[in-house]
Design a binder for these strands. Structure first.
Lengths: 174, 174
DNA sequence: TGGTGATAATAAGGCGCCTGATTATTTGTT
DNA sequence: AACAAATAATCAGGCGCCTTATTATCACCA
């Protein structure tokens, strides 16, 4: 997966051109829409590629982060699902993968025999404590291309965008 | 898939908190990074939900757009793959789906017996010409929450972000 | 005390997209 | 004319995540 970033370009150009052909369309809004999508693609693709080098993806990383921060290093899979924002069925698969790789361990919960305790292993902790600073530095290395002022402007605008979608996207989207 | 937008929140909060714990990390950059990802999720999820109501997703929409805009309404699948930014194998699957739904049609190419001509059907055109304006209006309805000035600022900042990733993400990302 | 409904986790099966291998056909070389 | 290399499309198999159904266990209350 080497040239993903360039690869994504024609796709959005084509959609932009198509949107421009819709009668009455506001091209600048279409452009904004597509740029948000494109940027999201580029960034999440970059993150995915970065994490893949360590055998991770965002979902698995979050599970490790959650376990690492839990008080006793012990969590229910349902708790994990909730905090990681995935379904319980999905968390089962994520944990399967992580367990197979030796990053987490499941043990029976003695207080509730339906449940199991999920724990991060020392190997998992080691990986996490190696990867997290690398990820942060990688991010900083890239985004420092924006000035501090630009960064805060961008955050503010993104928040406003998120809010707009949350409010107007709920039910009434014809 | 009703509450996806809210669902995505805790995930990024947790990553933000974790990043803040990395020694020497710049919390504002981490915040920016996560907000870009989050916004991308929210917007693409919204688009996906919108398109799903019409039996489409972004990839399939692009294929229809490309076919609709081709001069004679006829394209090779390899051309489609290139312009839609997916692999040739993927385009085969997309076309299978679209053909089954009656939106496109494959016919043999008489000039090159390896190839096939892909064409949008009248049903496909009808769908496209119904969905595209709806999508544009939906987008406008949401993003008009931002003023024209904010919109253009945001586009500029997103472009700068894309550029930063394209330039610094290529090979040297440790 | 037993039975009913909630709850924890998993299994089963689907979808979309990927990479890498395969089959037909064409093009270029000698 | 014959054969090697390139090319078009597809197949096979994998991954990640989803939704829905299933199994085991628990908690409540008549």
């Amino acid at each position: 997966m080497p040239y993903l970033l360039l690869k994504e370009v024609p796709r959005y150009e084509c959609l932009q051109a198509a949107a421009a052909r819709v009668p009455g369309a506001d091209p600048s809004i279409c452009q904004l829409f597509l740029n948000i999508l494109h940027t999201g693609d580029v960034v999440s693709q970059g993150e995915a590629t970065f994490l893949a080098r360590h055998g991770l993806n965002q979902a698995r990383l979050i599970v490790l982060v959650l376990l690492d921060n839990s008080e006793n290093g012990n969590m229910r899979s349902s708790e994990l699902a909730e905090h990681a924002s995935v379904s319980r069925a999905t968390i089962t698969g994520l944990l399967d993968t992580l367990e197979k790789a030796g990053f987490v361990q499941r043990t029976d919960d003695v207080r509730d025999r339906r449940a199991s305790c999920v724990k991060i292993t020392s190997k998992g902790r080691e990986l996490l404590h190696k990867v997290q600073p690398l990820l942060v530095r990688w991010t900083e290395g890239i985004l420092s291309a924006l000035s501090a002022r630009e960064q805060s402007q961008l955050v503010a605008l993104l928040r406003k965008t998120q809010k707009a979608f949350s409010e107007r996207c709920g039910h009434s989207n014809s």
